[in-house]
């Protein structure tokens, strides 16, 4: 029996929300292969190890070293590389976070093995232990399934929220093991000089249960305030297409999509968005998509469950007013 190794990140002293998602994906592979699920926690403590066990892991490795520099991919890469040489896992799972998507591929190349990025699903062959990874390609226009050549570990990077974390079960038991790793200073080639956060007012896009999507069809930055008014009715947030961000109407932190944020609200109301596959890649898991677009042939109507074909300038004010009345009453 071999191990499925999960690279669990730490955020503000706690396990990153993606840790549970990766453990869930790891459990799915484990159901097929019988391999155990281990979690690598780099720069963390025993307490986080116990939390990983509660989320479904069989074992947690805690690795610390003075050379680990928080937020620098090189550190986690060097540590994870050492852990892989020791544990020889079958599979390594990482998440498509800024650190995860830098560490996962580089680990695979360092070990000369295969890597599949941005995966939505995983399964494995019980006999060979080979994983099949399902991932969107061509901007989400097509789906592809890949299998890995013989060499281990098979490195897989999961799309955020592709799997749902299990509820923590403090009754679960597992080993928490401290690993002695000592990193070579020369492994750390980059230095984090500064972190600049653009504070968003109100509800964070990733947490919002209602999102209003702003598209190029709005013609300029001015209508943003009208979308904000609508978002306020639902205590929601405004997001945007890349076209809107590239045009400078909104900052890139508003961008939803393949190269922007992944959101999964209860309702995503798009206004003047055509529904290009690269945009849908970031929002297709929304529970409901609603479209306001003047072109009845726009792709967004193939993705939405309700929509109006019309000019947003006429449709939106009436929609907002009615929604406000309904929610106030």
């Amino acid at each position: 029996m071999s191990e499925i190794l999960i690279f669990a990140e730490i955020e503000e002293g706690d396990l990153h929300s993606t840790a549970g998602e990766l453990i869930a994906a790891g459990r799915k592979i484990s159901d097929d292969t019988g391999d155990s699920v281990s979690v690598a926690i780099i720069g963390g403590n025993q307490d986080l190890g116990s939390k990983a066990i509660a989320l479904g892991a069989d074992k947690a490795y805690i690795a610390n070293d003075n050379a680990i520099s928080e937020g620098v991919a090189d550190s986690y890469l060097a540590a994870l590389h050492k852990i892989c040489l020791e544990v020889e896992p079958n599979v390594v799972l990482s998440s498509k976070t800024p650190i995860g998507r830098a560490v996962g591929p580089r680990l695979a190349y360092r070990l000369g093995t295969g890597i599949a990025q941005d995966c939505m699903d995983v399964s494995a062959d019980s006999g060979s232990g080979r994983v099949t990874a399902t991932r969107p390609v061509y901007g989400g226009n097509a789906m592809a399934k890949f299998t890995f050549a013989e060499k281990n570990p098979q490195v897989i990077i999961m799309r955020l929220k592709a799997f749902e974390s299990a509820e923590p079960d403090s009754g679960r038991s597992g080993d928490v093991v401290e690993l002695n790793i000592s990193l070579d200073e020369s492994d750390i080639k980059t230095k984090l000089v500064e972190t600049v956060k653009q504070e968003s007012e109100g509800v964070r896009l990733e947490d919002a249960s209602v999102i209003i999507g702003m598209g190029r069809g709005l013609g300029g930055p001015e209508p943003f305030s009208q979308l904000e008014d609508l978002a306020k009715v639902f205590n929601g947030a405004v997001g945007a297409s890349r076209a809107v961000c590239d045009a400078g109407w909104l900052d890139h932190s508003y961008q939803i999509g393949l190269t922007g944020k992944t959101v999964t609200p209860d309702v995503y109301i798009t206004v003047g968005i055509s529904g290009a596959s690269q945009h849908m890649a970031g929002c297709s898991s929304s529970k409901n998509i609603v479209a306001i677009n003047k072109d009845g042939d726009a792709n967004i109507f193939k993705e939405a469950s309700f929509g109006v074909v019309g000019d947003w300038e006429k449709v939106l004010p009436a929609f907002t007013e009615t929604a406000r009345e309904l929610l106030d009453s």
Binding site: A116, T147, A304, G310, V315
Partner: peptide, 30 residues
């Protein structure tokens, strides 16, 4: 290669959109 492509397909989309139509565009919004 380290990876083998085993399947490539266009995902089926059977979602149906209900288009809401009122007397005019404002009415549709309402």
């Amino acid at each position: 290669p380290a990876l083998t492509l085993t399947e490539l397909f266009v995902p089926v989309n059977d979602r149906q959109c209900e288009i809401i139509e009122g007397e005019d565009e404002a009415d549709s919004g309402r």
